[in-house]
Amino acid sequence: MAAAQESTRPALWSRVLASLVDYLVILGWMLALAATVALLRLSTGKFCNWLELGPAGAQLLGFAVLVLPVGIYLFLTESSAAQATLGKRRLQLQVVDGRTGERASTPRILLRTAVKLLPWEMAHFSVWNFAAIASTGSTTFPVWLYTVAVVANVLPAVYLLMVGMQREGRGPHDLAAGTKVVRLRPAPAELLPGLR
């Protein structure tokens, strides 16, 4: 019989540490992509210029090879029976429904993942558009593009501040999806009838 669990709001440091563990997983994927690019360079003698696809094509390719796999990792692990990424599991954290404390539904986890990755995708969008404009020889960039880049870089700090300051430690991704992250701990023996 599985031990009963109760949950508490996790400390900010545990959320940050769990994220760092997950970033190591993401870094592993990025290193695999870099190795693939290097192998392609060795076999073809040239680097693939993603901008030949145009800014939208480069954005789509970047999404397909980097953001989508990371999103799949986050979604599959947080919607699994463990309800946690590898980093969260290591720190005994779990994503739950913010109202009931039960397992969050698949649509909630999907929305949580999308909102969580939004700043990253906005940053990629701005980078590809800056690169496309710069490749024409222009050094003048539109204000809207600077705005997207600034917002993309400020949002992660906003997410972190909200997790640290919000009463239940919920960032924008949790608030949008109706989820929250909790720390698991074994229930005290007196709360487990019949185990004495």
Rank of each mutant, 00 (worst) to 15 (best):
L76H: 06
L76Q: 13
L76W: 15
T77L: 12
T77E: 03
T77D: 03
T77R: 01
E78A: 10
E78I: 05
S79R: 08
S80G: 02
S80N: 10
S80F: 07
A81P: 07
A81C: 02
A81L: 09
A82I: 04
A82N: 04
A82M: 05
Q83E: 15
Q83V: 04
Q83T: 12
A84F: 00
A84W: 03
A84Y: 07
A84M: 01
T85C: 01
T85V: 02
L86E: 10
L86H: 08
G87Q: 01
G87Y: 12
G87V: 09
K88S: 10
K88A: 00
R89P: 00
R89A: 11
R89F: 08
R89G: 11
R90M: 13
R90E: 02
R90N: 05
L91E: 08
L91Q: 01
Q92V: 09
Q92N: 14
Q92D: 14
L93N: 02
L93V: 05
L93K: 07
Q94T: 11
Q94N: 10
Q94S: 08
Q94I: 14
V95C: 10
V95Y: 04
V95R: 01
V96F: 06
V96I: 13
V96D: 00
V96G: 07
D97I: 05
D97H: 04
D97N: 15
D97G: 09
G98K: 03
G98F: 01
G98I: 00
G98Q: 07
G98A: 09
R99G: 06
R99W: 09
T100G: 11
T100P: 12
T100Y: 00
T100C: 04
G101E: 13
E102H: 08
R103P: 04
A104I: 05
A104G: 07
A104P: 12
A104N: 10
S105P: 02
S105G: 14
S105N: 02
S105R: 15
S105F: 03
T106P: 05
T106L: 14
T106V: 15
P107D: 06
P107V: 03
P107H: 07
R108G: 07
I109G: 08
I109R: 00
I109E: 06
L110P: 01
L110F: 15
L111C: 11
L111E: 03
L111A: 15
L111R: 10
R112E: 06
R112M: 05
T113E: 04
T113M: 13
T113N: 06
A114G: 13
A114H: 05
A114F: 14
V115K: 12
V115T: 08
K116W: 14
K116C: 12
K116S: 15
